[in-house]
């Protein structure tokens, strides 16, 4: 049997989009003449890509996770307050933040699978709970500061042979991406996609549907915590650091050709969707488009991508606004 690379269905468009955007960047910005420019882009995009990978697990198994943005904010605010500039507390606090993300994912997953509340509602509720808790705890202004050690992951770089200085966040992203891609090739990963496609079929095949969904939420929560650590280092402490990231991650996943409702899509494409989104915002910025337009652009993308996924090849026909030339049975009016 000859092995040939195969793209999961719906992956090709996002790769084309990404390529076009990268070419666009090379033309529009002088910084993108050299690899370092792209490395900087990747570094900026890393937290969103990691969030998109987490969101992918939940979406492909048939759910939504709206809590990740609030979870990022909570992670950063908690870390800043507990570390309060102390270098020695760093390791413990990092573990605590990761544990917190895992716990939030566990609660999301348990409420969804055991109490049978739709994940959209559960995670929306979690978003509000986390937002409220952060506000209560900080009175609206986060206190404390992150240690230099903590900020290394979001800011620092590692000297890698051949490549030179590679940001930590890029290395972490690559490790997560490779692990996620391998996981999705495993039996458990394939079963996760099948759950999004037909839950009953998986259950009647002896699969543990609830555990698989729970796993997806836990992974999403954990990866949101990782994104919080990177963003805290990169962007610093604020009560708005994670706001809106849940929708950005969902947009990225959808842009990656992953079917809302589950059952189809690749994790690499979801990550590519996140990178495309970041590249697009960078390009718009270079072209002098106001940053205020970002959310509008994002809205258009999410609607467009879903329309493309639902209609596929039929889209061109539907979008034809002028009447089609008919060779009907009726004689043309003279």
């Amino acid at each position: 049997m000859t092995w040939r690379p195969r793209l999961a269905e719906g992956t090709a468009p996002v790769l084309v989009v990404l390529l076009l955007l990268l070419v666009g960047l090379a033309i529009a910005g002088p910084a993108y003449d050299e690899p370092s420019g792209y490395l900087a882009l990747l570094k900026r995009a890393a937290p969103l890509m990691i969030l998109a990978i987490g969101q992918y697990f939940v979406i492909v198994s048939g759910g939504f996770d709206l809590s990740v943005g609030a979870l990022v904010t909570a992670g950063v605010v908690i870390a800043a307050r507990l570390i309060d500039g102390s270098e020695s507390a760093t390791t413990g606090v990092i573990l605590l933040v990761l544990g917190f993300g895992l716990l939030v994912g566990l609660v999301n997953g348990l409420v969804t699978t055991k109490l049978l509340v739709p994940s959209f509602i559960v995670t929306l509720g979690m978003l509000l709970v986390l937002d409220g808790a952060v506000f209560l705890w900080t009175d609206g202004a986060p206190r404390g500061a992150l240690s230099a050690g903590f900020r290394t992951f979001g800011r620092g770089a590692l000297d890698v042979p051949v490549l030179g200085e590679v940001p930590w966040s890029v290395l972490i992203l690559l490790a997560i991406l490779v692990a996620a891609a391998l996981f999705m090739r495993s039996g458990t990963g394939r079963a996760l996609v099948a759950v999004g496609d037909n839950e009953a079929a998986v259950r009647l095949s002896g699969g543990q549907v609830d555990r698989l969904r729970l796993l997806a939420f836990v992974l999403s929560g954990l990866l949101a915590a990782v994104a919080a650590i990177l963003l805290g280092g990169f962007a610093g402490v604020s009560a708005q650091v994670g706001s809106g990231l849940e929708f950005r991650a969902i947009t990225a996943v959808v842009l990656g050709g992953v079917l809302l409702g589950g059952g189809r899509g690749s994790v690499v494409a979801a990550a590519a969707g996140a990178l495309s989104l970041e590249a697009l915002f960078t390009l718009l910025n270079l072209l002098g488009v106001s940053g205020a337009l970002e959310s509008a652009v994002q809205g258009v993308i999410i609607i467009g991508a879903v329309a493309y996924a639902s209609l596929g090849g039929g889209l061109r026909q539907r979008l034809r606004w002028w009447p089609k030339q008919r060779d009907s049975v009726r004689p043309a009016p003279s």
């Binding site: 039996g187 458990t188 099948a194 037909n198 009647l204 002896g206 079917l259 059952g263």
Partner: peptide, 29 residues
């Protein structure tokens, strides 16, 4: 093993490949 009467409803994950469906029980159970 149970082959149900509703092939599309609870027998197959229709958007998955022949391979993934064939391996579903082995992987899931």
């Amino acid at each position: 093993a149970l082959v149900t009467e509703d092939r599309k409803g609870d027998g197959l994950a229709l958007r998955q490949s022949v391979r993934d469906n064939t391996l579903l029980v082995r992987r899931a159970a």
